[in-house]
Design a protein around this nucleic acid. Sequence first.
DNA 1: CGCGTTCATGTAAACGTTTACATAACTATA
DNA 2: TATAGTTATGTAAACGTTTACATGAACGCG
Lengths: 343, 343
Amino acid sequence: MSAANRKVTIVEVAAAAGVSFGTVSRVINGDAHVRPETRQRVLEAMRALHFTANRQARRLAGGRSNSVGVLVPDLGTGYIGEIVRGIDAELSLSGYDLILYTTHRAPAKEAEYVANLVQDMVDGLLLVLPRNPTDYLSTLAQRGFPFVLIDHQGTGADCAAVAAANWQGAYNAADALIRMGHRRIGFITGALDLGAAVDRLDGFQTALRAHHIPDEAELIYQGTFHQTDGYTAACHFLDLPQPPTLIFASNDVMAMAAMDAVRERGLRVPEDISVMGFDDIPQAALVRPALTTVRQPLEQMGRMAVQMLMEIFGDPAVSPRRIELPTELILRDSTAPPKAQPS
Amino acid sequence: MSAANRKVTIVEVAAAAGVSFGTVSRVINGDAHVRPETRQRVLEAMRALHFTANRQARRLAGGRSNSVGVLVPDLGTGYIGEIVRGIDAELSLSGYDLILYTTHRAPAKEAEYVANLVQDMVDGLLLVLPRNPTDYLSTLAQRGFPFVLIDHQGTGADCAAVAAANWQGAYNAADALIRMGHRRIGFITGALDLGAAVDRLDGFQTALRAHHIPDEAELIYQGTFHQTDGYTAACHFLDLPQPPTLIFASNDVMAMAAMDAVRERGLRVPEDISVMGFDDIPQAALVRPALTTVRQPLEQMGRMAVQMLMEIFGDPAVSPRRIELPTELILRDSTAPPKAQPS
DNA sequence: CGCGTTCATGTAAACGTTTACATAACTATA
DNA sequence: TATAGTTATGTAAACGTTTACATGAACGCG
């Protein structure tokens, strides 16, 4: 109501409530040693003065800042965006603030810098899709700083992590499409320095083997998860003497680009060739034909990561778990049984 | 190299460099009063010790935290994401960190709380699409706290702001499509408590008038920018005795939903009915048929806002400007001249 | 009824900086 | 060569909290 011109501090609240600032601090931090009636008085004073604790000072003095840092590689693909949505939603439930860092600019060295920097700002860290995190992960772990990895198939080191069942998703999808009749499948990999990409490729190849389909080199195109790869990969496949009947891209973005390439050749999806992706980003359902894909529970991964972090906050000694969330094949309109089946 | 276990402070750097901590502080802040050779020694010590200044302490002591807060309503639509991308890119150029707050949870009152909270955390604020900002805007302005509004057609109060030429965009688009032959156009509005939505509607209606086309109530559907509105609006229009030949949605998300509705009726876009949107979010180009739309320079709006903020940092007394970035009609495949033209 | 406990509250130091001020070391001037 | 005027550096207080410790009041027990 009244336009307090300066910042309201704990001391002013104390004065208003007729107690010392120490007591106010105790009330804020929920310390048990404060008489209910005193607490009430303090609470009222806080409300009346529109008091909000200064997080800087809090954290500096050794308390919690009630915010967690989120490191993401970028914001471009929609894929990250979904994860962040989940994180944000869950975080706000717990009354934490989100501090977002994009690290697309940060090669090797900057990583440690960022980690360092972030450390005295936030209570914990959420690392989305860390690229080569070995550098600072050890530092973090060793200092006992709370963090959880999202979508990183790590070195197996015992870090708290949440990921999607990439291998399983790729396997199941390939299996289903093979049963549908496809035997020549062009696969576009992701950036193979990412565990997720390797897992998807591996799941795919295992399904092939399970059906006794030979693993032909010309049907594996090495991509990097970027849109352009989808386009060039599709061109490569279509130029083959015997093109595949299905293109399976390691993510949706590449799959969509592949569809464009197919159409540019005057071919139709899925009548002439089927296309599928991985991720189920929002636009996968919007694109025409709607994209068959493997759904990663992106938003839920974010939520889960936050929950794990809160668990760690509660008990720092808790042994780090790695949670793998299930993926699900989403059949839409971009896939169909192959039209001409020689076999 | 060496695994410093504790946080490195200014004092340790001072010891290593053989100077007092005051001098180190001066070096950090680029104070002129320090001998070049001393500065060199301090710099080396900082590097050797992997020193990074503690932002909390810095800000608490009255300095800058080198981070700016960004308030967004949510992260869902892709529309906001683009703006944030621009902000992030430009911010990192200036060496600032981004602190992201999503306010979807924040009705009326929380706004002031958030603003208060944020204030002692960041050096400045970027408010994306503030809903009813009058509450805290005055507080902010009155305290001389630096901030700039993004995509808010305000009360005309003199706040720094960047926006897109919504009126012009809608006018030009409508004008172009009318010249293409459309005379019955169904318009889906956005949430009319948002200035942008009003401007688009107004631009559209003005174009109609300019071409002496009567403004029929049944051809204006009041939406809220959400996907479902697009669907129901399209159904409404198609059920009309004389359906429009073009549906003009106030954003891309509604336009895409409208296309779905059209297709469900067994009609084809654009052969049977044209559809267009507004924003040019990334998926607008991906969707089939690719969506005709009005491009808002989303990313650039973010960049511009940061630049304005930096300007304010540089000289707080600078008089607040309102910048309106031009919009552009992007003709894609979802629009075509109307097929049967009675007139 | 007095003394050791327990519980509520006040106090002081610390967190890592910045900034205003004090001081020491130089210059330049007369 | 003494002296005022700079310029570089050191020092102390402040920022708004938390936390360990000190104090004082109330209470139960023998």
